[in-house]
């Protein structure tokens, strides 16, 4: 089954072409990486998929349905979750609330029931809380439940961001530089985490990353962007030895 189908996606900032004729087909359960120099338009692709930007042209179809023109929250509640390059938690809210907020679209009670704390309110709130606690346990964050997200150490903030994203019950997960600021050992653990949540939550994953260890280690397919255009695509070993990629991205002193 095709999870995500992007065709001839183009986006401009002013005169600058940030993404040009971007095509991508993601089958359910796939794990695909996007790499490319800084400013190549990788994060722009994520922003287009999640509806932060409106594409200039092209189509994005998720499970066969067109996404272009939909609001971000509608796209999210259809099952596309993401994390951010520079962690964007709700810093002054508790860890629990961070995860509970992501349950918004699944919570079934009306504004009136909320104002009066009546009807489905109690049962739904209990369900949301339990589901949030379960996620926190899964990510070993339960002892920080009531702490402000701001006070978590960096590694835990990254983990909380992933837990929060999973709370919207996504089918497709977009990870934007999950390994930023991690050392090689931590990256190894992150790789285990990613593989594990993919199996556990039946996810299709699209990720942007600069650390070759992670990208080459877990991605089944890699797409290389430069100046908004795709310059290479294929299995990790194919991409690694592509002369264009070596020149534009990896350089000669690439991290092994």
């Amino acid at each position: 089954m095709t999870m995500l189908q992007i065709e001839r996606l183009t986006h401009r900032f002013g005169g600058l072409c940030a993404v040009q004729d971007f095509n991508l087909n993601l089958a359910a359960g796939e794990l695909v990486g996007i790499i490319g120099p800084n400013g190549a338009g990788k994060t722009t692709v994520f922003n287009l998929i999640t509806g932060i930007y409106r594409p200039a042209s092209g189509s994005i179809r998720f499970k066969g349905k067109e996404l272009a023109g939909k609001t971000s929250n509608a796209i999210a509640s259809k099952g596309i979750a993401r994390t951010f390059q520079n962690i964007r938690l709700f810093k002054d809210l508790s860890v629990l609330d961070n995860v509970r907020i992501a349950h918004y679209a699944q919570t079934r009670y009306s504004a009136l029931e909320a104002l009066l704390h009546a009807g489905r309110y109690r049962a739904e709130e209990r369900r949301v809380r339990e589901s949030a606690m379960l996620l926190l346990k899964t990510f070993r964050l339960e002892k920080h439940t009531h702490e402000y997200a701001r006070n978590l150490p960096y590694g835990l903030q990254r983990r909380l961001e992933m837990a929060r994203a999973l709370a919207i019950r996504p089918a497709l997960m977009l990870l934007d530089e999950p390994a930023a600021g991690m050392n090689p050992r931590e990256i190894k653990e992150l790789m285990d985490y990613i593989m594990w949540i993919r199996g556990q939550f039946e996810l299709t994953i699209l990720l942007i990353e600069h650390r070759m260890r992670l990208v080459m280690g877990i991605c089944e397919r890699i797409k290389v962007l430069d100046f908004g255009a795709t310059i290479a695509e294929g299995r990790p070993d194919e991409v690694r030895n592509n002369p264009l990629v070596l020149e534009a991205y990896l350089g000669n002193e690439a991290e092994r």
């Binding site: 790499i35 120099p37 530089e177 600069h210 990896l250 002193e253």
Partner: peptide
């Protein structure tokens, strides 16, 4: 403080 964070390999070099 982490000058290479979030940079492409060529950029890191």
């Amino acid at each position: 403080d982490e000058p290479s964070m979030g940079l492409a390999p060529v950029m890191v070099t």
